Lab assay of single mutants.
Amino acid sequence: YKELDVHLRRMESGFGFRILGGDEPGQPILIGAVIAMGSADRDGRLHPGDELVYVDGIPVAGKTHRYVIDLMHHAARNGQVNLTVRRK
């Protein structure tokens, strides 16, 4: 696995990616679609299928989808987010 730290600034449309997973206990949280011309797309480092490991330094492995969405909403209010993702 390769770990990447990604800092994104929120645009009008948000951070520019969707979150998948976390529906079953222990299921990984994954990056879903990366939205064209969004913040994540312009940054270029997030890829669909990347596993989300940390959101603003908070571990999200094994957490629920709702928990991660709530963290992302909090980050959106701050206008930026630091993510750590893991890729095979």
Rank of each mutant, 00 (worst) to 15 (best):
Arg18Gly: 09
Arg10Met: 09
Glu24Asn: 11
His47Asp: 06
Tyr1Trp: 08
Val68Ser: 01
His65Cys: 10
Tyr67Pro: 01
Tyr1Phe: 13
Tyr1Gln: 03
Arg77Asn: 11
Glu24His: 12
Ile19Phe: 06
Asn82Met: 11
Glu3Lys: 09
His74Met: 13
Asp43Arg: 02
Ala61Gln: 13
Gly79Val: 02
Arg18His: 15
Ala33Asp: 15
Glu3Trp: 08
Phe17Asp: 01
Arg18Ile: 06
Phe15Tyr: 05
Tyr1Pro: 02
Ala33Glu: 15
Tyr1Leu: 04
Arg86Ile: 05
Leu8Arg: 02
Thr64His: 10
His65Lys: 15
Lys63Ala: 11
Met72Arg: 00
Ile69Asp: 15
Pro59Thr: 10
Ala36Asp: 10
Pro25Val: 10
Tyr67Val: 10
Asp43Ser: 08
Lys63Cys: 11
Gly14Met: 01
Arg77Cys: 12
Arg45His: 08
Gly44Thr: 05
Lys88Asp: 14
Ile31Leu: 03
Glu24Asp: 09
Ser13Pro: 05
Pro48Gln: 13
Gly21Cys: 08
Val55Ile: 14
Leu52Ile: 10
Glu24Val: 12
Asp23Tyr: 10
Gly62Met: 07
Phe17Glu: 01
Phe15Asn: 00
Phe17Ala: 00
Leu83Trp: 02
Ala36Arg: 12
Pro28His: 04
Glu12Tyr: 06
Ser13Gly: 15
Arg42Glu: 07
Tyr67Ala: 11
Met72Leu: 14
His74Lys: 15
Asp43Tyr: 04
Asp70Thr: 11
Lys88Arg: 09
Val68Asn: 03
Gly49Lys: 05
Arg45Met: 06
His47Arg: 14
Leu8Gln: 01
His73Leu: 07
Ile29Pro: 07
Pro28Gln: 07
Leu30Tyr: 15
Leu20His: 14
Thr64Lys: 10
Met11Asp: 15
Glu12Leu: 04
Arg18Met: 06
Asp56Lys: 01
Val53Gln: 09
Ala36Phe: 06
Ile58Glu: 11
Phe15Gly: 01
Pro48Cys: 10
Gly14Trp: 01
Leu20Pro: 02
Ser39His: 04
Ala36His: 12
Ile35Arg: 13
Leu8Met: 05
Ile58Phe: 11
Ala33Asn: 14
Gly32His: 09
Leu30Asp: 00
Gln80Gly: 09
His73Cys: 10
Gly16Thr: 00
Phe17His: 01
Glu51His: 07
Leu8Asp: 02
Ala75Met: 04
Arg45Lys: 09
Gly26Ser: 08
Ile58His: 14
Met37Thr: 11
Gly22Ser: 10
Ile29Asp: 02
Leu52Cys: 02
Glu3Thr: 11
Gly16Leu: 01
Gly38Asp: 06
Gln80Thr: 12
Leu71Gln: 07
Ser13Trp: 05
Thr84Ile: 10
Arg42Leu: 14
Val6Ile: 14
Tyr1Cys: 06
Lys2Met: 11
Ile29Tyr: 12
Gly22Asn: 09
His7Cys: 14
Met11Ile: 10
Asp50Leu: 00
Leu52Pro: 01
Arg87Val: 03
Gln27Asn: 11
Gly32Thr: 10
Gly62Phe: 05
Gly16Cys: 01
Met72Asn: 02
Phe17Leu: 14
Gly49Met: 08
Leu46Asp: 01
Lys2Asn: 10
Gly44Tyr: 04
Arg42Thr: 08
Arg18Cys: 08
Ile35Leu: 13
Ile35Cys: 13
Gly26Pro: 04
Arg45Asp: 06
Lys63Gln: 11
Leu83Arg: 00
Asn78Asp: 08
Ser39Thr: 06
His74Phe: 11
Gly14Ser: 06
Leu83Gln: 00
Asp50Arg: 01
Val85Tyr: 02
Gly44Leu: 04
Gln80Glu: 15
Leu4Gly: 00
His73Met: 10
Ile58Gln: 13
Val55Ser: 00
Ala36Met: 06
Pro25Trp: 07
Leu52Asp: 01
Leu30Ile: 14
Val53Cys: 11
Val34Ile: 14
Asp41Pro: 04
Val85Leu: 08
Ala40Gly: 05
Gly16Asp: 02
Arg66Ala: 14
Gly16His: 01
Ala33His: 13
Lys88Glu: 07
Gly57Tyr: 06
His73Gly: 14
Gly62Trp: 04
Glu3Leu: 11
Val53Trp: 08
Glu24Leu: 09
Pro59Lys: 15
Gly62Lys: 07
Gly57Ser: 10
Val85Asn: 02
Phe17Tyr: 01
Ala61Asp: 09
Gly79Met: 07
Pro25Thr: 09
Asp43Glu: 07
Leu71Asp: 01
Ala40Pro: 04
Gln27Gly: 10
Asp56Pro: 01
Val55Arg: 00
Arg18Leu: 06
Phe15Ala: 01
Val55Trp: 03
Ala76Arg: 11
Arg77Ala: 13
Gln80Cys: 13
Val53His: 08
Leu83Glu: 00
Ala61Ile: 14
Glu24Ser: 13
Tyr67Asn: 11
Pro25Glu: 10
Tyr54Asn: 14
Lys2Gln: 09
Arg9Ala: 10
Glu12Met: 06
Tyr54His: 12
Arg77Tyr: 11
Ile31Ala: 00
Asn78Pro: 03
Asp43Thr: 05
Arg77Thr: 12
Leu30Asn: 08
Pro59Asn: 14
Ser13His: 13
Lys2Arg: 07
Gln80Ala: 12
Asp70Phe: 08
Arg9Asp: 14
Leu71Glu: 03
Asn82Gly: 09
Tyr1Met: 07
Asp43Cys: 05
Glu12Trp: 05
Arg10Asp: 06
Met37Asp: 15
Arg66His: 11
Val34Trp: 01
Met72Gly: 00
Leu83Val: 09
Met11Glu: 15
Ala36Val: 06
Asn82Ile: 08
Asp56His: 01
Arg66Ile: 08
Ala33Lys: 15
Ala36Leu: 06
Asp50Ile: 01
Ser13Asp: 15
Glu12Cys: 08
Arg87Thr: 05
Phe15Glu: 03
Thr64Tyr: 05
Arg42His: 08
Ile19Gln: 01
Leu4Gln: 05
Ala61Trp: 11
Gly57Arg: 08
Leu52His: 00
Val68His: 01
Asp70Pro: 06
Gly26Asp: 09
Asn78Ile: 13
Asp5Phe: 13
Tyr67Arg: 09
Pro25Lys: 08
Asp50Met: 04
Lys2Pro: 00
Arg10Ser: 15
Met11Ala: 14
Ala33Tyr: 05
Pro28Trp: 01
His7Lys: 13
His65Ile: 13
Ala75Asp: 03
Glu51Leu: 05
His47Val: 13
His74Tyr: 10
Met37Leu: 11
Asp70Arg: 11
Ala33Leu: 04
Tyr67Thr: 10
Arg9Lys: 15
Gly79Glu: 08
Gly62Ser: 06
Asp5Glu: 13
Gly32Gln: 09
Glu12Ser: 12
Gln27Trp: 06
Val34Phe: 05
Gly32Asn: 09
Pro59Cys: 15
Ala75Thr: 04
Lys63Phe: 06
Ala75Arg: 05
Lys88Asn: 11
Pro28Met: 04
Ala76Trp: 12
Lys63Tyr: 07
Met37Gln: 14
Ile19Gly: 01
Asp70Glu: 12
Gly26Val: 02
Gly79Tyr: 06
Leu8Val: 06
Glu3Asn: 12
Glu51Arg: 05
Ser39Gln: 06
His65Val: 09
Ser39Leu: 02
Tyr67Gln: 11
Arg18Asn: 15
Arg86Ala: 06
Leu46Val: 07
Val68Asp: 02
Arg9Tyr: 13
His7Thr: 14
His74Asn: 13
Leu20Gln: 15
Ile69Ser: 15
Asp56Ile: 00
Thr84Arg: 15
Arg10Tyr: 15
Val85Pro: 00
His73Ser: 13
Leu4Met: 12
Met11Tyr: 14
Asp43Leu: 03
Gly49Tyr: 06
Val60Ala: 04
Tyr54Glu: 13
